[in-house]
């Protein structure tokens, strides 16, 4: 390593030892004693960098900025929901028309296996395109209150693993002319998404009856599991193909 390369590397080395374990920096620092002309330069450079770090780190920040960011996020989410309302209304009208049109077949003809595949595919598309949450909160109880206010299916049965995870928030999805709740959880580097739908949306007798989750299986490569209660069906979908879904149960 010649002097020029050594100087280039050391210029990118943070002055409080944060990069000391980086192999490129380690090699540069270790070779410094073999470049006596540069040791003094490096010390001066470090002193200068430390002073600059102190000044930049103390640059004033507007006192109300934090409060403004939090307030703006709340307003934006509320406005986003209002903007979606006309579309929901239009979708609801279309759904009502579809219900009338398909009345002989009824709304509850779908099997749970078909619903499972459709919901997983829908989530896959959402994840690819990016999606927003209608309500952001890390309190499950607060998410439940918001869903109740919104008239969406409620998560009556949530297992210990998900309760121990951190909720990110929820979204109410329009699916086949009705509402499906999606609650997003995070634990470690994994995420899982709980879909809740009214049992009445499917053919009679469809869907698991047990409150205990079924063994984890894969739909379109994603780990999924399901359970049920008298009123609702629950589908838990891994945020990725390698999500450890058992951690959310």
């Amino acid at each position: 390593m010649d002097d020029a390369e050594l100087q280039l590397r050391l210029c990118a080395c943070r002055p409080h030892g944060q990069d000391a374990d980086d192999p490129l920096m380690r090699a540069a620092l270790d070779s410094l004693p073999r470049h006596p002309g540069l040791e003094a330069w490096h010390q001066q450079q470090t002193d200068f960098d430390r002073a600059m770090c102190r000044h930049v780190g103390q640059a004033p920040v507007p006192a109300r900025l934090r409060a403004e960011i939090l307030a703006a996020a709340k307003v934006s989410r509320a406005r986003g929901r209002r903007a979606v309302l006309p579309w929901i209304a239009a979708a609801a009208m279309l759904a009502a028309a579809a219900v009338v049109f398909w009345m002989p077949r009824g709304n509850g003809v779908l099997s749970f296996a078909e619903a499972e595949v459709e919901l997983v595919k829908m989530f896959d598309r959402m994840q690819t395109e990016g999606f927003s949450l209608d309500h952001v909160s890390d309190e499950l109880a607060e998410v439940g209150t918001w869903l109740a206010d919104a008239g969406a299916p409620l998560p009556y049965v949530v297992h210990a693993g998900a309760r121990a995870a951190t909720p990110m928030g929820c979204r109410v999805l329009d699916w086949r002319g009705g509402r499906v709740t999606m609650i997003c959880f995070r634990k470690g580097g994994d995420s899982a998404h709980l879909f809740v739908l009214d049992r009445a949306r499917l053919a009679e007798g469809e869907g698991p009856l047990s409150r205990d989750p079924a063994p984890v299986h894969h739909v379109d490569g994603r780990p999924v599991t399901a359970w049920g209660c008298r009123k609702c069906l629950y589908l838990l979908v891994g945020g990725a193909k390698d999500t450890r879904l058992d951690d959310f149960l």
Binding site: A73, S76, F131, S132, L133, V136, R186, D190, G239
Partner: peptide, 12 residues
Amino acid sequence: FLRWATRGFQLR
């Protein structure tokens, strides 16, 4: 931060 509120939380 608004972008995070709508998209960033998806970060694995």
